[in-house]
Design a protein around this nucleic acid. Structure first.
Lengths: 201, 201, 201, 201
DNA sequence: AATGAATGAGGGTTCATTCAT
DNA sequence: TATGAATGAACCCTCATTCAT
């Protein structure tokens, strides 16, 4: 019956929502499965029908968020007529940074869960769904640019670490400068990295 | 009495040593205060006479490690006659990366405790002791170079995030490449960043 | 409808088979009703249509096994021309011991379920089915022997306790001696008991 | 301080007493550590300071009981002037059976815990204390009798299984006969076994 | 008759923290 | 100062049982 499946989906969603709120508010470690179930108005045991443990529900949440974020960024990029590789990368980074700026909750969530690793994985590795992901798109972008790079994969890795390491700190603490002051310097750094990794002919 | 103070220091050191070993071996979360006290051959209650909780002892440990690491790097730099700013930065980064490579325990410790933030703080902010720290030395280095930078503090911040984000991953997982393959690409990136942040005259 | 009854019997059998395998493998305590139903490819709720709980299905299983074991032993005895009472008893005991030796699973099952009591009941008391059981046959054997015993029922009880108490231990742990070394000593003891219980004329 | 040790001993005793009562009343499986602690008026966690789990406290209890029982039986034997080996064995068996008859609680306890195995171990193997145990005394008795046996250890094993298997059933259910009717038949059987295991010269 | 989602009590276990000694 | 026994809340997880479908 579709009816039952519908209900199950809804329950799962309720659990995901509760977990998200609690992880964001109290942090991952300080949230118990009891808490999640209670907030979702279910019995504790019911949680286990949907997720094996806290880690699974967290990773699930992060995957969803990362997927959405990236899909939006990609859509936005397609609406533009940016063709230069570096500009495209900057556009996507900027889109994501802005998104985080607007949606501090998401940022807090990922930060409070100490799970940048998982987030990066979700961004970089094929998600459960068989859709495009950043990795794939990036490779297409690389293929279309006339430039050649020493090691494009490592380059992406470094850019993500740089942006993913700096931005949360800046956005959450306004240190060492505000995000608006920071952005041009960051993008300059990204441009420099890309430029520097081009193969010398 | 200096004697009593001496004894206290020694006990504190025993606790710190025990905690370090346990955090490194079993991870921060899986180490209890009981464990630490037992390994230090003290009663559980005694722990509370020296540290408020696990978090305090962890942060203390990290500060010490970071301090030592940096002092060593600085000493090593003084033994050389490198004068160029960028080269100096690279030298220090490389020293630290090599130290981590040799001393995986420290890397594991910081990584297992998910406490890069604390480590970076220790590196960047004045430590409890009134000694020199990276921040100070860095400012001296900046002062001595003829180049001018948009925002030296932000530049250091970005470099630390880049190196501190990438290296643990690479060293612990050999992905996306081995640390030896990675180093030249990383240092190239650092050079690019520094170059790109120079004020255009 | 015989058809529906047929189906029910089959489902019941599937449950019994699953339970036997699981009890044998994981032990009684560690097997849940969920496990049994899953292994029988049924819904959990269905279990309750056939058995009240785990204990009922366990006792049912033991009865079946004991019944079969005994029927086989009796058949084997009929194939021989042993007429002496004591020899007949020893033959049956030996048959059952050998059967357990060959079929460690059954032994493990009964042993893991700590249910010798149930097994002995099944052997001694009329089973649910209205067939012959050990008790009946034993009485016939007693009737045919010229000897008279103080209390034949008690004698059988003691023999079963002796054999049923010793053999599992010996077979499963090889202590205090191996089953092959043990058998002659045991049968000697059984012969002594029978001899000793004969009425003095 | 003796004071603290005294208190600890008392607490342990309270736990042992509570456990004994509960195991006897509700059975081992149906007794939780919570129950035991509650009945002993302690916090649940305190239980774990004294015993690792339910099994340990049960075995501890059984050891104590078996030890006491045997020490009493031995004392009683020394008060008599029975010198014949078989008579000595029967005396001890009878003493223990009588003790069980008088003290049904102990019998129930062992029976409800399905732990004849542990009880027999306690009777047969050296206990934690470095005192005499049945095994040792038995060997002395064997040494002093002029008769020789095929395998004295196996003989003891069989006797214990026979008595330990039959008596609880008889005492708790009065089946197949009352314990008073049963005793002479049982002792006759024991005598027969001993006689039958003597080496033929 | 059959299902399996939902329940929630209950299990064992850990551990930060307190406090009398 | 130092101890370590005692606490009891909190954790995760299991599972027999119910009941709407």
């Amino acid at each position: 019956m579709g009816k039952i499946d519908e209900k199950k989906k809804q329950k799962q969603k309720r659990l995901l929502d509760s977990a998200f709120k609690l992880f964001t508010t109290k942090g991952f470690q300080n949230t118990s499965i009891s808490d999640i179930a209670r907030k979702a108005s279910m019995a504790k045991g019911t949680f286990y029908l949907y997720f094996k443990d806290k880690y699974v529900i967290r990773d699930h949440l992060i995957s969803i968020q990362a997927d959405n974020l990236f899909k939006d960024a990609e859509q936005a990029l397609l609406q533009t007529d940016i063709t230069d590789f570096t500009d495209q990368i900057i556009f996507i980074l900027n889109y994501i940074v802005d998104e985080f700026s607007k949606n501090k909750v998401l940022l807090t969530f990922i930060s409070k869960n100490l799970s940048w690793g998982v987030f990066k994985d979700a961004l970089t590795h094929p998600s459960t769904e068989d859709e495009l992901n950043f990795q794939t798109i990036y490779q297409q972008m690389i293929a279309q640019t006339p430039d050649e790079f020493e090691n494009p994969e490592v380059m992406l890795f470094m850019i993500i670490e740089l942006v993913g390491g700096c931005c949360p700190n800046v956005m959450l603490s306004n240190e060492p400068v505000s995000i608006e002051e920071f952005k041009p310097l960051l993008y300059q750094a990204v441009r420099s990295i890309i430029e520097g990794q081009k193969k010398k002919k």
